[in-house]
C-alpha cells in the first residue's frame, strides 16, 4: 500500500514528472519533492493558512489536499508569483509597509491577496480583512498587512484614472 505512483504535477507553469505515495499531502510534495519551501506548514488542519497555494487561480490549503488529487491543475506557489529576482507590486508593498516580521505567514498572505486583487482589483478594507481571515499572523497584528494590500489596490485605481 506504500507503493508510489507516477504523477505529473504542474507548478508555477512547469510540469514535473514525479512519483508520490497517495497519502502525501500537496504541501509536503511541494516542499520535499520539488524543493519549493516557500510553502510553509503550520497546523496541517486547515486553520493557519501558511500552506495556502493557488489551485487554478483560487486559494486553497495545500495541507488538506493530496498531491495525487491535483494532476492536470495549475498550482501556483509563492515562488511562482514572479519570474527572476524582482518582486511583484504586492510584494514591494509588503516590504514598504513592514507587512512581515518573521515571514512565516507571508507566502500564504501573498497568495491569498494576489487572488483577491485578481478577482476584485479595488476591495474595501472589510473585504481585505475577510479574505485574509483564514491566514494567521502571530507577529504583525495584521494592520500593516491590510495597509500593504490596500496600497496596491489604491495604486491600480490610480492607474485606471
Amino acid at each position: 500500500m506504500n507503493s508510489k505512483v507516477p504523477l505529473k504535477l504542474t507548478v508555477n507553469g512547469e510540469t514535473f514528472d514525479i512519483e508520490v505515495e497517495p497519502r502525501w499531502l500537496l504541501s509536503d510534495v511541494l516542499r520535499h519533492q520539488l524543493g519549493l519551501v516557500g510553502t510553509h506548514v503550520g497546523c496541517e488542519q486547515g486553520a493557519c493558512g501558511a500552506c495556502t497555494v493557488l489551485i487554478d487561480g483560487k486559494p486553497e490549503r495545500s495541507c488538506l489536499t493530496f498531491a495525487i488529487q491535483v494532476e492536470g491543475q495549475q498550482i501556483t506557489t509563492v515562488e511562482g508569483l514572479t519570474r527572476g529576482e524582482h518582486l511583484t507590486p504586492l510584494q514591494e508593498s509588503f516590504s514598504a509597509h513592514h507587512a512581515l516580521q518573521c515571514g512565516y505567514c507571508t507566502p500564504g498572505m501573498l497568495l491569498t491577496a494576489t487572488a483577491l486583487l485578481e478577482q476584485e482589483p479595488h476591495p474595501t478594507e472589510q473585504r481585505v480583512r475577510e479574505a485574509i481571515s483564514g491566514n494567521v499572523c502571530r507577529c504583525t497584528g495584521y494592520q500593516f498587512i491590510v495597509d500593504a494590500i490596500l496600497a496596491v489596490a489604491g495604486d491600480t485605481k490610480e492607474d485606471v484614472r
Binding site: 497517495p22 497519502r23 496541517e44 488542519q45 486547515g46 488538506l64 489536499t65 493530496f66
Partner: peptide, 23 residues
C-alpha cells in the same frame, strides 16, 4: 473524499485511517 476539508484534518491526525479513498 469530496473537498477533504473535514476528512483530511482527521487523516492528518490519524483519527481516521481509511484503506481506500474514493475521489
Amino acid at each position: 473524499i469530496a473537498g477533504g476539508q473535514s476528512l483530511v484534518p482527521l487523516m492528518n491526525f490519524r483519527l481516521t485511517r481509511p484503506s481506500l479513498l474514493v475521489d
